[in-house]
Design a binder for these strands. Structure first.
Lengths: 346, 346
DNA sequence: GGCGTGGTGGCAACCGGTGGCCAGAAGTTG
DNA sequence: CAACTTCTGGCCACCGGTTGCCACCACGCC
């Protein structure tokens, strides 16, 4: 088949021959509305479908410089947080007729850069999610290729960041209403822009609300990373902890259970992202949800705009939101057996 | 930038001009080891790196018919079962220098076919996971393009299926040892080849073990689908249920909890796949794990072999395996409070 | 010294489209 | 009816590589 396959596949020349016109006429009939007479277009279209013609994107890409492909670079494909994002991105790209490349950098800047270079040649544009590259490397890429960064802010590069205020404000208000005054933020990797952004806003808004907050970290953004922080969380004396992401929050939850610390009775836990699984834990996890599916969609739309030379418009609807579940309650209750919120056990 | 970007990007002609040779010599120096003299190759390589040359995959694809891209088609990107599979696939493709396209058919045969056609032109080969197409459509695709189907068997098409026997045998032995004699299989979608395969093997192996088993279904392969089956599961009088996948098993778990039915005290539950989250539930889920990451890797390796005209070799290590957690115990215990297996709460 | 041989590089065609430019036909206008 | 547009289709160069074939050169050998 390797050879057989190479044969077949009708080209515009086949159509041209059958209709008795030149190839450029076929090209125009198929892609330049109004450029050829209606009945000629008609004849060419019928011949094209009869021959099962499908355009060769590579051949088209050569003169136009446009491959019709976009690329998505993630630091960790198996992090559940990305799946809604990928879905949103995939929907928009397939709806607009683009193909989507995907690659994972495995938290390594070098392999991220390598993948980015590979895709610079093969795709029309790049989306970098939670990039591990430094600002200058990103700027260099953006100089050569349309580029959108997600969950990161780089000067002079199109970026996409959800509005953290409603979610973080909601979380702080929620905890304050429950009676918490002393909080901990479990931070993520030191090179994570988003971890820093969450922390800085928490700091700011906690002070506004007259609450104390300390940072513990940096930590790896996994369940293990969350579990590893337990000792320091306890030592801090805080009554509630916000973890950089749900994975860490879940890790902490499990570590608490193993150590006999009741959640939310002795410690309230809040996560970020609302990943799949956040409502499967016991207690189910209160978390700050990001509109991930929509962010994926918007990222691709902005990228397409950039590819087409238009100015990307970011809708202001990318707001985070607090999802209240069962891992938060008033401080210093002796037992976790009666979480005060609607429980969602499995 | 849309224009600026199109400029730059050194070509082999730029290198040729700088070194003072012809483009074909450059092409050979770069990709035909030994075809040009060593010092000429040396000079060309230095010039290439000096100019920041990177090959244009589209230009190369035109004469060779090889784009260096592979495509992965899934029915549902957000199903956690695919996460590890995608990772395995991505690792192998990026390790072999291929780029990976990804698309989701949203359970629709029409959009799957549409995506497949799009990728036929742009990629060297396709991987279809849990395809919703009928056998003939898949065969037609396979006639025109190197193709590997995963979790599906189609005559004359390369397929990749894990060995279900160890996992299913293990699950039946486990349940039998616990004292169960009467089982239910909660089947998935009627067009799911894998659901059928699991059922048929369960049937076969249950009879061998002198156990009763009935099928309930078909059902949608989601938590809702699992929850929806509760009434019929109860009515069957069975003491243990195996669900088509973990999502359904988790849905059933939650429905049981809501209905006051103790798991595993009143009902033991076994899932399939061991997705992310299967050990987050309470009780944590006993499940038949598939080697998903490796399957992703093997799928891409087979596809590459097919692309290169070699015979794909499927290693016999793709065995399923029973993961015993806390959702199974002996039948008819009054309470679920003391699951007999090491519990993994949160 | 003539000839064979292997090593090395160039020429040119080709992959499948795109698009600028041109020419003939048809239609408009004065 | 001539001059001028507008339509419509063809010609051809080009995008950036690959590769079959040929030519030239140096060397070795008889």
């Amino acid at each position: 088949m390797t050879l057989a396959e190479r044969r077949s596949r009708a080209t515009i020349y086949d159509i041209a021959r059958q209709v008795g016109v030149s190839a450029s006429t076929v090209s125009r009939a198929l892609h330049k509305p109004g450029r050829v007479s209606t009945d000629m277009e008609e004849r060419i279209r019928t011949a094209a479908t009869a021959l099962g013609y499908r355009i060769n994107p590579m051949a088209r890409a050569l003169p136009t410089g446009r491959s019709g492909a976009l690329a998505l670079l993630l630091s960790d494909i198996t992090n559940p947080v990305y799946f809604p994002f990928i879905r949103g991105a995939e929907r928009v790209s397939s709806a607009t007729g683009s193909s989507l490349f995907i690659a994972e950098s495995r938290e390594s800047a070098a392999s991220e850069l390598h993948a980015a270079h590979r895709f610079q040649a093969a795709a029309d544009g790049l989306v970098l999610v939670a990039s591990r590259l430094d600002d200058q490397a990103i700027r260099d890429l953006a100089d050569a290729t349309p580029l959108v960064v997600v969950n990161r802010e780089v000067d002079g590069v199109a970026g996409l960041i959800p509005d953290l205020r409603p979610g973080i404000g909601g979380a702080l208000d929620h905890l304050r209403t429950l009676g918490h005054r002393s909080l901990v933020y479990l931070s993520g990797p030191s090179n994570s822009w988003m971890s820093r952004a969450r922390w800085e806003l928490l700091l700011d808004m906690a002070v506004d609300r007259d609450m104390n907050i300390v940072e513990i970290g940096p930590g790896t953004p996994t369940m293990e990373g969350g579990a590893a922080a337990l000792l320091r969380v306890r030592a801090s004396g805080a009554t509630a902890v916000l973890a950089f992401n749900d994975l860490m929050a879940i890790g902490l939850l499990r570590a608490c259970h193993a150590a006999g610390i009741a959640v939310p009775g002795h410690l309230s836990v809040v996560g970020f992202d609302d990943i799949f699984g956040a409502d499967l834990t016991t207690p189910s996890l209160t978390t700050v949800r990001s509109p991930l599916t929509e962010m994926g969609a918007v990222a691709i739309r902005s990228l397409l705009a950039a590819v087409n030379g238009a100015v990307p418009v970011v809708p202001e609807t990318l707001a985070t939101e607090l999802i209240i579940r069962a891992s938060t309650s008033g401080p210093r209750h002796a037992s976790a057996s009666r979480p005060r919120h609607e429980e969602n056990p499995t």
